[in-house]
Design a protein around this nucleic acid. Structure first.
Lengths: 203, 203
DNA sequence: GAGCAAATGTGCAGAGCGTGCAGTTATAGC
DNA sequence: GCTATAACTGCACGCTCTGCACATTTGCTC
């Protein structure tokens, strides 16, 4: 048959993508409607018209349905950090990343509501930021030419993640930060970090 | 019968405490021997000479056996922060707390090894620090007289937790920080934070 | 000490997540 | 069409965790 669709993908691939999206869509809807815990894999499977077993061939776990795109985010950040030109710091890269990530998105809003109502998911989210933080630590360590026992990369990365989290995850969810506010926050944090680093340099 | 033991506790209480300790002890030993995931509740129950069902009346979940003392830590930190005298900052309190927590302890070492070998437990640990971080955020917000939208408490707390974690959880586990090194790290972080806060103040 | 109330331990049944495996169905390429 | 391969499915199972009813133990009073 060879590839003859405008999409450049065969039927098999397209079906797969569609199923993937369907599972995410119906799952998020169900989670939002009746709560994450109270929604079973069986229900999602039925709504998505696949077998329960199939869900687990698309997602390693129920939580992974909710955080379906974090893997990709991680990959993109890794690339952006790895390929940043000479002179561009990890902080610069992250700032740009945050700006881009502020684009509002219906699915992401839905997810935010879901996560906000479930303790376990909040844990999960936190845990899933750890790899991102590790990327940052590494990149910042390069920027600072830090030795392994140097604590600076870790506290800088932690501050950045905290700011990122605060922007995306204000306690009182429903009124997220505006783009402007978020940028102001980011720049505050960057000033803070520069001030802190400067203070350490002068010791 | 009234209380007539030197311990000030009746038989029932003492038995309970003993069972509690036994479960923790045998569980940690089994986890260390054969891995967390590969150890079942049934095995722990057998080794502790109780029924599997009883384990869950002592601990809400398998993970809670590993982190059996974090609840108490949280409570102690909450009290220390709440009752700190005028003029003593949250940072001071935490510094003292970290110093105390550096006391080496066989059980804690064992746990560190267990957690180091299990992905899920590392997530769990991270998640369980969130409440502590929240306590800190609140206390620091007081110290700084921060308004709700002020980001500073969150980044300061995140830095502190990062430092605390780094001290207790160096990537290459087995050679933990010495007391001196740890204190040096803490004081670096405190300098860093003061420098960062100063930088923000001057804007 | 006998006896009663409350706390504690236990067994059982079951829900739910997640996995391994084998069999069926659908697709791709010829 | 035909075959190799990928995807889907059903089934059995192990494990964590819960609810519930029942048995056992303990604390206390008389």
């Amino acid at each position: 048959m060879l590839v003859h669709m405008e999409s450049g993908l065969g039927l098999r691939e397209r079906k797969k993508q569609k199923t993937h999206e369907t599972i995410i869509r119906v799952a998020l809807e169900l989670f939002a409607e009746q709560g994450y815990e109270r929604t079973t894999i069986a229900e999602i499977a039925e709504a998505a018209e696949v077998s329960p077993r199939t869900i687990f061939s698309y997602f390693p776990s129920k939580e992974d349905i909710v955080f379906y795109d974090l893997g990709e985010l991680h990959a993109r950040l890794a690339v952006a950090l790895r390929e940043r030109p000479e002179g561009v710091t990890a902080l610069d890269v992250l700032r740009e990343f945050i700006v881009v990530s502020l684009t509002p998105d219906r699915t992401h809003k839905l997810r935010r509501c879901i996560v906000a109502t479930d303790e376990g998911l909040q844990r999960g989210k936190r845990a899933r930021f750890a790899p991102l933080e590790r990327l940052l630590v590494e990149a910042i360590a390069q920027d600072l030419q830090a030795r392994p026992e140097d604590i600076r990369p870790q506290i800088v990365a932690a501050s950045l993640i905290a700011a990122f989290t605060a922007i995306h995850d204000p306690e009182a969810e429903l009124q997220p930060y505006s783009q402007e506010q978020a940028l102001a926050v980011i720049d505050d944090v960057l000033s803070f970090l520069r001030g802190g680093l400067e203070a350490l340099r002068q010791r």
